[in-house]
Simulated assay, not measured.
Amino acid sequence: MSEIIPPRPIPPPWVSNVVEDRFGLSVILRVGNAQQLFRWIRPGHFLMGTQADESERGSAELQHEVTLSNGYWLADTACTQAFWLAVWPVNPSHFQDHPQNPVENVSWHDAQGFIAELNRRFPGLYARLPSEAEWEYACRATTTTPFSFGNQVTVEQVNFHGHYPCIGGDKGIYRQRTVPVASLPANPWGLYEMHGNVWEWCADWYGEYPAAPQFDPSGPIIGKMRVLRGGTWSDPARYARSANRSRIEPAYRPRSSGFRVALGQIRSPVGIHNRIC
């Protein structure tokens, strides 16, 4: 497949700072005393899901081609408790000892309420949850291995239940809690803790993957459960794989569920819109 060469993105008007480093272009959004860095994720193609011979793959990970025709900004970390409290008045998290811990124990609806308030405060922000395809594309960051770090991960790279590594991996510590965001190594695109720490809500309803190539997929039109990605601090390493999928009802607050904000309008068959619900 030919590579999509996008134009250089124009920083949005709401940014407080523009940064360019070895990972590429990023912008910073400040809310009160809190801030969130967003990295530019350029358009591209990738193989979503897993091959049949990938170790510990799930049954709903049918590999298929995906094209994302539009770039988007993606938070380099899960939403922190500091950023959450700058927008929303109540902290639902269990681990509240550090403001840079990810906010957790939030439902899909809770995340949407937070995002709606962000959009109210910053017209033209187009904050939203990433689609499941956008999430996996960013998590993989051009890699094709089970993790963006390779075929195995250690507890020095990912916050998972260290007593349960992937097959052939070494056991490590079990922290029994979240860690502050950006305290573990970033993936090749400068995104932190895409593997482990907290589950991250995606915009999509959960559904089986199609076998045919997909163009800007956004999941089923209707459903009963929303997608969660990334695994968590209390899960075995296999749940932190780039392609691993979980799902739960959008009103439910599972243990250590968090989210990562995306910015930018998305394309649909009827035009450009901001899907926030």
Rank of each mutant, 00 (worst) to 15 (best):
F160Q: 04
F160H: 13
F160R: 10
H161M: 12
H161P: 06
G162K: 10
G162L: 12
G162Y: 08
G162M: 09
H163P: 12
H163C: 11
H163F: 10
H163W: 11
Y164Q: 15
Y164K: 14
Y164I: 05
P165A: 14
P165H: 06
C166S: 10
C166G: 07
C166Y: 00
I167W: 05
I167E: 15
G168N: 09
G168M: 07
G168C: 08
G168P: 09
G168F: 06
G169W: 01
G169S: 04
G169H: 03
D170H: 07
K171Q: 15
K171Y: 01
K171S: 12
K171F: 03
K171L: 07
G172I: 05
G172P: 07
G172Y: 04
G172D: 06
G172M: 08
I173M: 06
I173P: 13
I173D: 09
Y174L: 12
Y174A: 11
R175H: 08
R175A: 14
Q176P: 03
T178P: 04
T178D: 03
V179Q: 11
V179S: 12
P180D: 00
P180G: 01
V181E: 14
V181S: 11
V181W: 09
V181K: 11
A182H: 02
A182N: 13
A182K: 14
S183N: 08
S183A: 08
S183V: 01
S183T: 12
L184R: 12
P185E: 02
P185Q: 02
P185S: 00
P185G: 06
P185F: 01
A186Y: 02
A186S: 05
N187R: 07
N187I: 07
P188V: 02
P188L: 06
W189Y: 05
W189L: 09
G190P: 10
G190Y: 10
L191Y: 04
L191H: 03
L191N: 09
L191R: 10
Y192D: 01
E193T: 00
E193G: 03
E193D: 15
E193Q: 15
E193R: 01
M194P: 05
M194R: 07
M194N: 04
H195M: 02
H195F: 00
H195R: 01
H195T: 00
H195V: 01
G196S: 09
N197R: 04
N197A: 04
N197H: 02
V198Y: 07
V198S: 13
V198D: 06
V198I: 09
V198H: 12
W199N: 15
W199D: 11
E200Y: 05
E200M: 10
W201N: 10
C202R: 14
C202H: 12
A203E: 13
A203S: 12
A203R: 14
A203Q: 15
A203F: 12
D204R: 11
D204N: 15
D204F: 07
